[in-house]
Amino acid sequence: MSNLELREFHSFLEGVIEETSREQRFSIEQVVGIILSKHPQRLDRIKNEVMALGLRALVRNNCRAKVSSTNNGADMFGHYHVGKRVSVPYKDEKGKLRWDKKRRTELSFEDLDEIIARWDDRRPKQSRDRKDFDDISRRAAPYRDVARTIGEALEMAERDGR
């Protein structure tokens, strides 16, 4: 899809949004319904891009989800506000800060240290995520020398009643 087609669709979409919100409160479902029922030809021209956008949104939502549908055992991260995949900072070959998504069950102690170090670079306001990662770090600390991952360390802490 060309930039012209994309701009054209955005203008069209803006018009549909404006038109529907004049008559009543704004509703995403109503806008989607109008496009699907009254303007399928417009959607047909950009369906690949719309599908790619939708898939990216689904992947992001899945990575942020807290509960895994494929987890067979106990979820050691269940009561923490930590997504199934966690952004872990690292330096690329040129020394530039990058972010990798890792399964929370495969986080290493070095990963946890890097995540917490990035928060130390920020303002002092503590977020819920920061509190959870600090608690994870505290609970996992006694097992640094025996566990391969944070997930294993949390299992050991749970087993030991910590």
Rank of each mutant, 00 (worst) to 15 (best):
L4V: 15
E5F: 07
E5P: 04
E5M: 14
E5H: 12
E8T: 05
H10D: 04
H10P: 00
F12C: 00
G15M: 04
E18G: 06
E19A: 15
R22E: 10
E23D: 13
R25N: 08
F26P: 01
I28R: 10
V31E: 01
G33F: 05
I35E: 00
L36G: 00
L36S: 01
D44W: 13
D44H: 08
R45W: 02
I46S: 02
I46N: 06
I46A: 08
M51S: 12
M51W: 13
G54C: 05
R56S: 01
A57T: 09
A57F: 12
V59N: 04
C63F: 05
R64Q: 12
K66A: 01
S68N: 01
N72S: 08
G78M: 07
Y80I: 00
H81D: 11
V82F: 10
R85M: 14
R85Q: 10
S87H: 10
K91R: 15
K91W: 07
K96V: 14
R98L: 02
D100V: 09
D100G: 03
E106K: 15
E106R: 15
E106F: 09
S108T: 15
F109H: 01
E114Y: 04
I115L: 12
I115W: 03
R123H: 09
Q126L: 13
R128C: 02
R128N: 04
D129K: 15
K131A: 11
D135M: 15
I136W: 04
A140K: 00
A141V: 01
R144A: 04
A147W: 06
I150Q: 00
M156I: 14
E158R: 11
D160L: 11
G161V: 14
G161M: 09
